[in-house]
């Protein structure tokens, strides 16, 4: 494709990214660096602040669409702290799956692919995209949550009992390295599309059109990185290497969840997440 076509594709994916993902990297950066003019997130650092934070999630003024989306699942009285945190994270994750799905459908050519292949690409790609999306929300001290209204400290997450305390640490470690690449939102949009359009996912029926689509997005990504980040000629190669790390990270995460399901009898896995993780790794 001509570079004008590639730039048009980048613009289209960037617009879709901004339309479907409420907490972009630039917004997260502003919140994390305290540049939101007094509208700083509520910090959850212990059980008491977790209970108070719950109130903030329900009461903070949000645009109508976001307010509808952030309604929490019904409270279960006397629920164990760890299970309660896990349930909240799951609920937000299920919402994020919907956002990623809408973004995925906007990738030119995606909805013309075989329906079976669309399901497989989404099933395998969605957690990788969500993990990447988490990186800009994190710094060394914690992570934003609930559309940037909450900041949950890393120490609090580490203070949860085993095995819950082990779940977020690998994501913080990945985020620290990923954030060094200093991508912007438009780079992220293209990278997400590249992840989704991976032609080597197990069970795909018709690989060729997927690889063709991915090739075009890769060209658009390479062109964009060269244009926006001219001082970092290795950025494209470095970013593609992250895809290997992501697969390993997600595979470990899914194994962790399967183990949790066996060990934690009171833990319920969200049906949508259950569907995605079943027979995944």
């Amino acid at each position: 494709p001509e570079s004008a076509d590639l730039r048009a594709l980048s613009r289209q994916l960037c617009l879709s990214y901004h339309r479907h993902f409420p907490l972009t990297k630039s917004k997260a950066k502003a919140i994390l660096s305290g540049k939101t003019h007094g509208n700083s997130p509520f910090v959850i650092h212990d059980m008491k602040s977790l209970t108070a934070g719950q109130y903030f999630i329900n009461c903070r003024q949000l645009p109508v669409l976001e307010r509808q989306r952030s309604v929490l699942p019904p409270e279960e009285p006397a629920e164990e702290l760890e299970l309660s945190v896990f349930r909240r994270i799951q609920f937000r994750s299920a919402e994020a799956v919907q956002e990623v799905t809408e973004f995925t459908k906007s990738i030119p050519g995606f909805t013309e692919l075989d329906m079976n292949d669309q399901v497989i690409l989404l099933k395998y790609g969605v957690i990788e995209v969500m993990t990447t999306m988490l990186a800009p929300l994190m710094n060394k001290d914690g992570t934003l949550f609930a559309y940037g209204q909450i900041f949950m400290t890393r120490e609090f997450l580490k203070s949860l009992r085993k095995p819950f305390c082990e779940m977020m640490e690998p994501k913080f470690e990945f985020a620290a390295k990923f954030n060094l690449l200093e991508l912007d939102d438009s780079d992220m949009a293209l990278f997400f599309a590249v992840i989704i359009l991976s032609g080597d996912r197990p069970g795909l029926v018709n690989v060729k059109p997927i690889e063709d689509l991915q090739e075009t997005v890769l060209q658009a990504l390479e062109l964009q990185l060269k244009t926006i980040h001219p001082d970092c000629p290795q950025l494209f190669a470095k970013l593609l290497q992250k895809m290997t790390d992501l697969r390993q990270l997600v595979a470990n995460h899914v194994r962790h969840i399967h183990l949790l399901k066996k060990q934690e009898l009171q833990m319920c896995l969200h049906p949508l997440l259950q569907e995605i993780m079943r027979d995944l790794y």
Binding site: Q98, T101, K105, T111, M115, Q118, V119, L272, E275
Partner: peptide, 21 residues
């Protein structure tokens, strides 16, 4: 595959209506 991934399938097919979570 469709049977095992009913929600994903629905999310992919319905353009605007939110899935009951």
């Amino acid at each position: 595959l469709k049977e095992k991934h009913k929600i994903l399938h629905r999310l992919l097919q319905n353009s605007t209506s939110p899935v009951e979570l």
